[in-house]
């Protein structure tokens, strides 16, 4: 069969290759949906299939797990509330973050979407007590060619100090968040509150 591509098909393919706009906080919403699916009680047939799939789990243990998950599921249903950092930033209120809360927040951390704008930066990373101030832990990705920087991180509920590390060397506090009064690392930092329900 002859190759089906030619100049016109190439043009059409290029036109369809344009990326769709991605809303800020989209990744955090996906993570929220993933976690929400975990706390939703499953139909009885699905639980049975899963139990049958895992031969290493005894019937007694499986029964206890199913019972426990049902209790947790019913208690936590409807408690999920999501919003991204950028939404909060748009309102220019001093508290840095709105949060996503779910059953695993205490142990796994809450997904937090962060957006930071600095046009001439070559690289930006989020550093804070939630990632041990590790410059490599949470690199931000540029949105478009000259758009803002974006990242999603996991932070346990509570108070956190953080900053943006620009070009690997300059720490910049979040201009729209409350300043940390006693930064852990000796430079400018900001405070965010990650909340549980």
């Amino acid at each position: 069969m002859i190759e089906e591509r030619d100049e016109l098909v190439d043009r059409a393919a290029r036109a369809l290759s344009a990326m769709s706009p991605v809303k800020a906080g989209a990744v955090a919403r996906v993570l929220m949906a993933v976690r929400a699916s975990k706390v939703r009680p499953q139909p009885a047939w699905k639980r049975s299939v899963r139990w049958l799939e895992d031969a290493s789990v005894s019937a007694r243990a499986a029964g206890m797990l199913v019972a426990a998950s049902l209790v947790v599921g019913f208690v936590l249903r409807g408690t999920v509330d999501v919003a991204g950092y950028s939404t909060q930033a748009l309102s220019e209120t001093p508290v840095a973050l709105q949060t996503i809360s779910d059953a695993g927040a205490e142990s796994r951390g809450v997904p937090v979407a962060m957006v930071f704008e600095l046009a001439n930066a070559k690289s930006v990373a989020v550093v804070g007590d939630f990632n041990g101030w590790d410059p490599a832990a949470t690199p931000m990705q540029r949105v478009g060619e000259d758009g803002p920087w974006s990242a999603t991180l996991l932070a346990k509920p509570g108070r956190h100090t953080y900053a943006f590390l620009v070009d690997g060397s300059t720490l910049v506090a979040d201009p729209l968040a409350a300043k940390a009064t006693s930064p852990d690392f000796g430079g400018d930092a900001s405070v965010m509150m990650v909340r549980t329900p």
Partner: peptide, 20 residues
């Protein structure tokens, strides 16, 4: 860095390219 104030995130609906 004072010039940063107020520049944060008016970015709902921006276009995102591939992460490199």
């Amino acid at each position: 860095m004072g010039s940063l104030r107020g520049k944060l995130s008016h970015t709902l609906g921006v276009r995102r390219e591939y992460v490199s």
